[in-house]
Amino acid sequence: MFRHRRAVIYEPTESAGQAALGLPRFQWGEAQAMETSRQERHHEWRDQWEMFRDEAGFLFQDWILPATLDSFANKEVLECGCGGGHHTRIMAGVAARVTAVDLNTAELARGRMTDFANVEFVDADLTTMELGRQFDVVVCIGVIHHTDNPDRVFEVLLRHCRPGGLIVVWTYSAEGNALVRFGVEPLRKLLFRRLSRSKLAGVSRVVTAMLYPVVHTVYRVPFLKFLPYFEYFANFRRLTFERNVLNVFDKLNAPQTHFTSLATARRWMSSDRLDQGSVSIRPYVGVSYSLVGRLKP
Results as ranks from 00 to 15, higher is better:
64 I>A: 02
127 T>F: 00
4 H>T: 13
237 R>K: 13
219 Y>P: 03
20 A>N: 03
157 L>T: 04
1 M>F: 04
112 R>P: 02
121 F>K: 05
107 E>Q: 13
216 H>N: 15
222 P>N: 07
257 T>P: 01
114 T>L: 14
51 M>T: 11
230 F>R: 12
158 L>Q: 12
14 E>Y: 10
119 V>L: 03
125 D>K: 08
184 V>T: 12
276 Q>C: 01
274 L>P: 02
66 P>L: 09
233 F>T: 12
243 R>C: 07
143 V>D: 01
148 D>N: 13
187 L>G: 03
67 A>S: 13
10 Y>Q: 11
161 C>V: 14
93 G>Q: 06
93 G>T: 00
264 T>P: 00
150 P>Q: 02
81 G>N: 08
177 N>D: 07
241 F>W: 13
65 L>H: 12
225 K>H: 14
118 N>D: 08
86 H>E: 15
295 L>Y: 03
154 F>V: 05
177 N>A: 11
132 G>R: 05
79 E>Y: 07
249 F>G: 03
188 R>A: 03
46 R>G: 01
103 L>P: 06
224 L>M: 14
47 D>R: 11
258 H>Y: 09
166 L>E: 09
94 V>A: 06
88 T>S: 07
6 R>P: 03
140 C>T: 06
27 Q>D: 10
15 S>F: 10
55 E>L: 12
110 R>T: 00
237 R>Y: 02
132 G>A: 03
109 A>S: 12
218 V>E: 00
210 M>A: 15
277 G>S: 12
2 F>E: 10
218 V>R: 09
137 V>W: 01
283 P>D: 05
20 A>W: 08
100 A>P: 02
59 L>A: 03
138 V>H: 06
129 M>V: 08
35 E>R: 14
226 F>H: 11
284 Y>A: 01
20 A>S: 14
203 V>Y: 05
32 Q>E: 12
148 D>V: 04
160 H>N: 08
171 T>W: 00
198 S>H: 11
130 E>L: 07
6 R>D: 14
247 N>Q: 13
212 Y>H: 13
262 L>I: 06
111 G>M: 04
118 N>W: 04
293 G>Q: 07
150 P>D: 01
212 Y>G: 00
227 L>E: 10
83 G>K: 09
35 E>D: 11
50 E>M: 10
49 W>S: 04
124 A>V: 05
233 F>Y: 15
84 G>C: 10
39 Q>R: 13
32 Q>C: 05
230 F>V: 06
255 P>Q: 01
289 Y>A: 03
148 D>G: 15
201 A>C: 09
129 M>T: 06
130 E>K: 14
196 S>W: 08
148 D>I: 06
219 Y>G: 03
37 S>P: 00
280 S>R: 14
247 N>L: 13
118 N>L: 04
83 G>R: 07
122 V>Y: 08
204 S>N: 08
81 G>Q: 06
34 M>A: 15
62 D>G: 00
198 S>L: 10
102 D>Y: 02
244 N>T: 09
